[in-house]
Nucleic acid binder design. Structure first.
Lengths: 246, 246
DNA sequence: GTCTATACCCCGATAGAC
DNA sequence: GTCTATCGGGGTATAGAC
């Protein structure tokens, strides 16, 4: 009995994976807006109605693809950070840059899945709550780098303007209460700017503009690390002009 | 004869505009990937085949919308800069921030046109050369701000790493030969990061994260100005620690 | 320049047999 | 869980009359 159910479940898992794989190919060819259950079924040698046993609707298939994509890029970031300390576990800018580069590398290797999660929203589709956990993984990795740096030697950033103070405190208490609000604000900014760089490269805005994209990205990621307050050498205290003025 | 042709041409221009207006509404409802000549025609009380007298194909209509969108956001940036010097024509960070805010305001007011030009590429569509001029307008405005600041008092930025020097010089000679390469590199970075901020806000990544988006954006835009080397007071010379270290 | 008609495709979703 | 058949839509693009 259990073996029978085991076999059935195994088959179900395999078919589900095959459907998602084929759907990812469709994504590349036609885009998320035109992802169609019928075309997937056709390519798989099934009939469209059979797919409804695996995904109750087109949007559910889309959700599965989105969750998978967030998990994949999140895992890439986590792995990159875990494997980063080759040179120096306390070289926080290097760990930051390695993580950013891993995210970019994943994006370059999976441009259509990247577009699915960081590009224009799919019209008529609204993401369910299932996606919010996976969607936060990259951000959490970036936060953890800043946290390590802050624990090791503190991060000094210039004080925030009055207009931002309330928002900064709300933000801080929600996502990283152990970090200074200025650092949290800088992190959220760097997080969005990181994807701005990747999106411009991937979506063609750098065509005929930036050629050596590896070098450009590495430089920009390093500047982002700096903006977040990561420094190579532990800053002893709060020196004006170093962390603050710039 | 000329009046007849004039009338015909006027009518043609009006119908063309009506088609584009309706197409923009479709864009909002269904997205660029599903923009359909038939639906536009239906809404306009025409029959689909009539539209082919105005746009030879769906992609030509799409191109017209893309060019219009780039021109609109470019004009918004240019106007904002032209009207910026209310407080102080030499307050370059303020002029920068005003320009960035205008771009963001246009994006918030026209989210679907924004997604058309800065979101995921439309599958199966490749932009013709007609779009590259309009697409560069915002970037040119940002460059002109840096140029003004550089002419007024010079911009000091830290030297570039060796790996980026070749690319930086190529880039500089192509888009702004009168500016220091480090500034040009920073400008390209800030340009892409600006749209990263706007895209994250517009595409929903800030949902449940950033609430006071006006304040957050103003702060981030100010940091970008700083990254480009714009300072409130003319930097007399090249002071270490001020422009460079940070 | 607009019309009808047409050729030839696509889709999501469900009912009911097996 | 897969099938056929079906409902009720949708689309691009062209031909040829007016």
């Amino acid at each position: 009995m259990t073996t029978i159910r085991g076999a059935r479940e195994r088959a179900r898992i395999e078919v589900t994976a095959a459907i998602k794989d084929e759907a990812r190919k469709q994504l590349a060819a036609e885009g998320a807006a035109k992802l169609s259950l019928r075309a997937v079924a056709r390519q798989l040698g099934m009939v469209s109605s059979a797919l409804y046993r695996y995904f109750p609707s087109r949007d559910d298939l889309l959700t599965a693809l989105i969750v998978d994509a967030y998990d994949a890029v999140g895992a890439a970031a986590e792995t990159a950070l875990a494997n980063a300390p080759d040179p120096d576990p306390d070289d926080h800018p290097a760990r930051w840059t390695a993580t950013c580069s891993a995210v970019r590398a994943w994006a370059l290797a999976h441009p259509h899945e990247y577009a699915l999660i960081y590009g224009s929203p799919v019209p008529g589709y609204t993401a369910p709550m299932d996606t919010v956990g996976p969607a936060s993984r990259v951000g959490l990795v970036l936060i953890s780098i800043a946290r390590d740096a802050h624990r090791a030697s503190g991060i000094a950033l210039p004080p925030l303007a009055d207009e931002l103070r309330a928002e900064a405190h709300r933000l801080t208490s929600e996502i990283a209460p152990d970090l200074p609000p200025a650092v949290v604000v800088a992190l959220v900014g760097a997080w969005s700017q990181l994807f701005g760089l990747i999106s411009f490269e991937l979506f063609g805005q750098f065509n005929r503009i930036v050629e050596d994209r590896d070098a450009f990205f590495a430089h920009a990621a390093g500047r982002l690390a700096h903006e977040v307050g990561l420094r190579r050498r532990p800053a002893a205290g709060t020196q004006r002009g170093s962390g603050a003025e710039s």
